[in-house]
Computed example of a mutant assay.
Amino acid sequence: MDLHEGFALNQALSAFALAALELLDRESPDYALDVVSVIEATLDDPRPVLMAQQFEARGEAVAAMKADGMEYEERMDALEDVTWPKPLAELLEQSLRTYRQRHPWVDPRDLSPKSVVRELFERAMTFGDFVAHHKLARAEGVVLRYLTDAYRALRSTVPTSARTEELDDLVEWLGEVVRGTDSSLLDEWEALANPSDAADPEVRPTTEGRALSANPRALRVMVRQSMFRRVELLSLGRYEALAAIDGGLSAEQWQDAAAGYLAEYRQFSTGPAARGPALFTVEEGDGLWHVTQVLDDEDGDHDWRLTAELDLAATDEAGEPALVVTGLAPLT
Rank of each mutant, 00 (worst) to 15 (best):
Q267L: 14
Q267F: 15
F268L: 04
F268E: 02
F268I: 05
S269Q: 14
T270E: 06
G271A: 13
G271W: 07
P272N: 08
P272L: 05
P272I: 02
A273G: 12
A273L: 15
A273K: 15
A274Q: 05
R275F: 12
G276N: 07
G276L: 09
L279K: 07
L279P: 05
L279S: 02
F280Y: 14
V282Q: 10
V282N: 10
V282D: 00
E283N: 12
E283G: 11
G285M: 05
G285K: 05
D286Y: 06
G287M: 03
L288H: 08
L288I: 06
H290I: 11
V291R: 09
V291D: 03
T292E: 13
Q293R: 09
V294M: 13
D297E: 02
D297R: 05
E298T: 01
E298C: 09
G300R: 06
G300W: 04
G300D: 00
G300Y: 00
H302I: 03
D303T: 07
D303C: 12
R305G: 13
A308T: 00
E309Q: 11
L310Y: 03
L310G: 04
D311E: 04
L312K: 00
A313Y: 04
A313W: 07
A313F: 08
A314H: 06
D316G: 01
A318S: 08
G319K: 04
E320V: 14
E320Y: 12
E320I: 09
E320G: 15
P321L: 00
A322C: 02
L323M: 11
V324H: 06
